[in-house]
Design a protein around this nucleic acid. Structure first.
Lengths: 188, 188, 188, 188
DNA sequence: CATGAATGAGACTTCATTCAT
DNA sequence: TATGAATGAAGTCTCATTCAT
């Protein structure tokens, strides 16, 4: 018998991989159990069910990333530095764990409706950083939602291209380019 | 008895709406039939099955949009004008049929693996236009895939914000802003 | 428009062929209509439904053959001559219309339960001829059912071999051999 | 929880009975599950599906009987003794498990097309035994396929009569009569 | 008589979840 | 805690039959 957390972790990683490869609905409990080398029933010792597993995988990592993003930008003084740090954070996250990143990206359309406003949220972090920058006059005032969308779009679409192997470089190696692009968009 | 194409069209629109609202896997044949006011079996006189319906809805519109995009940019002489036309085309498409646009956006992760290179493809159109612009020296040379990702990201993420109602303006009213942002990203 | 009986006949022959090829349950109304070049609904102008079609095809030909068999043996004086005539009748029937013969053979297990004793029946004809022959002392007395089974078995199993193409000769060319075999079985 | 093989065996016997009573197409998964006292889904833990169940039931027993038949004739020296042993084997099989025998008899028309030449086959066993007997001069030379058809016809049609209750004796009690009849047919 | 779109009952099958071991 | 056979609700799809034209 494995220690409890080890089995739970095994389930989490296995499910993550299969969810990304086949979609959540396209992945069965049996798939997960078989790939993890455990019995089907064992999964239920660690998670209440499949939906809970998918949700847990999503929200814990989504929140953790949002908090990390918030922490990292807080350590910077200027908007430019905050933007730089955040974009690099996205890139590092992707390069460090592309499967998890992909999951958050691809699962969001199914899970986002269960996200409540009080939960930490990467989109909100970016929006607020940009709004604050506008307030402080670091960039021209504008609709902070539009600004956030454009910045996120630049970074996330590059990640999607990487997922679909239209790009082969690491995201980190593109960070500088992305930061510069975002800045030009914002600096108007 | 309705004329044949009328029923097929009814099924298509109903399915589109439900697929966007509940996801493809989250929508049952029964859902579609009930919402369309037809019998379950009737659907199968018009489509071979649920997968084929989802695929047909995706690829026919995805391809049609790609061709339209290609046509519209070909009518412009400069990259700046092509970019302007293409972005406006995205915006007009979204405003004209947000459900269809959403479907193409959300369904792509499930259907894209069935897209073959010879099928017309909006991503490819954008990439080629940008690559040509680089070749002609209209914008600084760079990785055309990265450039395409950034341009697409700006437009599509704004569309996603609109879908999730973070934005309330029409996309068309944002077109100028988006074109300008894209251009600044590209013009380096 | 075809004359009524021509369409009905077309349906009957088409159904017969498909029933033999694919089984009754394996054949759909749509199959029949498509193969016959008519609309699905047209079939119902000529037959009450699929079951009725299969039954009609069976019982009318089954009965007709039984009556023919009875008539032909009645024209012969001795058991040997009756047997000869009946076996030749089976062979001629097979060679003349192997599809119909196959249908009667293969469909019987599904339809026989609907056959009532007062319906003319080839098995019964053979049994009675043999029983009468025993009564008249033309062959040794024995269980007429066993005798009928053996005689029928010889003829029908050869037909089955022909259907499955284990044999290539016409049945008629084997008639002499079959009659002789039956006679040896009976003559004890 | 029953031991695995017990449930599979229960499904097999129940299906066999229903297939014989109602035909394969006339028997639903629900029928089988209800008659076996299990849930519908349970069947699928033991068989891939209904077709596979019907096929497995057919081919495993068909092959097993062919091998047994081959084994039993190999233990005899003369054709007469081989024939005697084989006919008694058919009779004993029928009397021992009339449902299984009926299934093999009735299912063959649907399943035989999936039988490949390398699969053991009772018809082939009989044919080869007779062909060898002809080669050794134990019976007059002739077409071994015709001979096999006649011998099989005698035995199988008697079995069919028994299935339809035209006969009430056990087949074993008729074995002597059948062997004698076959021999007269062959000995010419 | 012919058509063929529409119907809807019912078939097969999948799969998240339970529970006795 | 782990197991995996069993469950049964629910999904996809088929097809005999009907009926308005």
């Amino acid at each position: 018998m494995r220690p409890k957390n080890q089995t739970k972790e095994l389930i989490a990683r296995t499910a993550l991989r299969l969810f990304v490869d086949q979609g959540i609905d396209g992945t069965t409990i049996r798939d997960i159990a078989a790939a993890a080398g455990i019995a089907e029933g064992t999964l239920y010792r660690h998670y209440p069910g499949k939906d809970a597993l998918a949700w847990d995988l999503f929200i814990s990592n989504y929140t953790a990333f949002a908090l990390e993003l918030h922490r990292i930008q807080a350590g910077q003084a200027t908007l430019r530095a905050k933007l730089d740090a955040m974009v690099r954070q996205f890139c590092a996250f992707f390069d460090d764990d592309p499967i998890l990143f992909s999951y958050l990206l691809l699962a969001q359309h199914g899970q986002l409706q269960k996200v409540t406003p009080e939960m930490a949220n990467p989109v909100e972090v970016v929006r607020q950083v940009l709004a604050a920058g506008m307030d402080r006059g670091e960039i021209p005032a504008g609709d902070p939602d539009v600004a956030a969308a454009m910045v996120l779009g630049i970074v996330l679409q590059v990640a999607i291209f990487k997922i679909y192997q239209r790009l082969t470089q690491s995201l980190t190696s593109l960070a500088e380019v992305l930061v510069e692009a975002c800045w030009r968009v914002l600096a108007g």
